[in-house]
Design a protein around this nucleic acid. Structure first.
Lengths: 264, 264
DNA sequence: GATCATCAGATTGTCGACAAACTTACATTA
DNA sequence: TAATGTAAGTTTGTCGACAATCTGATGATC
């Protein structure tokens, strides 16, 4: 079977060359849009035209539509027939669902984390600690956006600890959806003063190897997060999926700095 | 805000009309391919050309490529650069991962199921019971394919009990991946004689409202399933992602009955 | 005055075509 | 004989264009 790799298999392989990561245009576009969503440059519910978006990204409509389908499968975009696309608006039910799922997944991630060898754990703890410090700095600077980014990255690191690509992907999507909840409810970044402290406590539990405490803290945090989200009733709340685009302003908004730097 | 729905909001709404489900071509294609994967018409790892596939489906390459991206996001397809597409080959690690995730999700589904009102539960129990009977019939007839389908449907019904679209979608993908595991390891449908009995027991636990027993039975079943899958070492096992397509025969195989009946 | 029909405008869904990239096979050379 | 260089062939990635469809508004009718 392996004689197919004729030339290579008999040649001595020196060093350890990792395979080149060649990303397709569709990947680039999907990442750009995903990033724009996370950054808040594409607010939920705003109707976007394909042609306009494709022009801004510097690609034609073909690859853009392919990327749209991928993001739609992730649940980040809605594609109403013949109405372009729009970032999905999260409802209170979505918020509950997302945070409930995250609780189930992340508590398990905590267990998986603590099941790893100490060396790996130490390295990850460094990363986690760095993110907590980032939260603290952002809090001092009153930088809601930076705070939110550090928050997402903290949980992303946690997701990596699971050692399952499938799980990591799920968490990645859930985290973006989490932010979409914020945007859908508040329409802007929001500072929570106790966020850093909560995560400092979680980090401590992981350092101490106390799985149960970690789970308790995490679930409390997520519950609190949901409470904050659904307590504040906004216009987004009573939007149903069906008339998702009804509220969008007629003037197509400028998209902010959407850029696909190296694409063509 | 609601005055946008001018004509309708003032008209008396008779009966309960559910919104028309207008499926796009991309949806149709994605469903067709998904179905072909589940039916085993598209075996894992076989390289497929876009043009050929598009022709068989009676569509052009544009929509097909969009559908490909969606299925790729679901983890069912791999799209190597400039090599067309192929159904993903599941490894032993994948099998473990999938079944582990299913255990986490489905035990929770059991709890959610038992938390529902009795009336709803009864109806779902009928569906579940029907699937178990289907398994028994298939077992008598030695129909591996029918058995497998009933198995998937049983767990699909369970997924619906969760009341979370997000969770249902995850489970849907995981179930297809489960079948992909079978195809990847055995390359054909496989009859397990105790499948019906195992599910009969689970059904009984749900009828009795015994959540703990249900979870125990379910986890035992999934563990057993993994054992069966990884115990049988096949050529698919030692295939790594990188040379996924290396083994594909040079003759592009006929795709079986891939059909998009109503598409154009 | 409200409802319905008609029409123009704009946008999407789909297709066909071209060029670039990759694979495979063959010839050449050490 | 094995490895390298070259070339042809095939397939993808991308783009531009056309037609079908939907939206929104205007005008006619009861």
């Amino acid at each position: 079977m392996s004689d197919r790799r004729s030339g290579l298999s008999r040649t001595r392989q020196v060093g350890r060359l990792s395979p080149v990561r060649r990303t397709s245009t569709v990947d680039l576009i999907a990442d750009a849009i995903r990033g724009a969503i996370v950054d808040g440059d594409l607010p939920p519910g705003v109707a976007l035209g394909e042609a306009e978006l494709a022009f801004q990204l510097g690609v034609s409509r073909g690859p853009l539509r392919e990327a749209m389908q991928r993001l739609c499968a992730e649940g980040l975009l809605v594609i109403p027939r013949r109405r372009g696309l729009a970032v999905r608006i999260m409802t209170a039910d979505d918020a509950r669902d997302i945070h409930w799922l995250r609780a189930r997944i992340e508590t398990e991630l905590g267990h998986r984390f603590l099941a790893r060898p100490v060396a790996e754990r130490k390295e990850m703890l460094r990363y986690l600690s760095a993110e907590v410090k980032r939260m603290q700095r952002a809090l001092k600077a009153d930088d809601a956006r930076e705070l939110g980014d550090a928050y997402l990255d903290f949980h992303r690191v946690l997701a990596e600890a699971g050692g399952s690509a499938r799980l990591e992907r799920m968490m990645g999507t859930l985290l973006i959806e989490t932010r979409l909840c914020t945007f859908s409810m508040y329409a802007h970044f929001e500072v929570h003063r106790d966020l850093a402290d909560e995560h400092m406590a979680m980090l401590g539990a992981l350092e101490d190897g106390d799985a149960e405490l970690f789970c308790r803290l995490l679930e409390a945090h997520l519950r609190e997060e949901v409470r904050r989200l659904v307590a504040e009733p906004t216009e987004a709340e009573d939007l149903e999926a069906g008339r998702l685009l009804a509220e969008t302003p007629d003037v197509p908004q400028p998209l902010g700095r959407l850029d696909l730097s190296e694409g063509v």
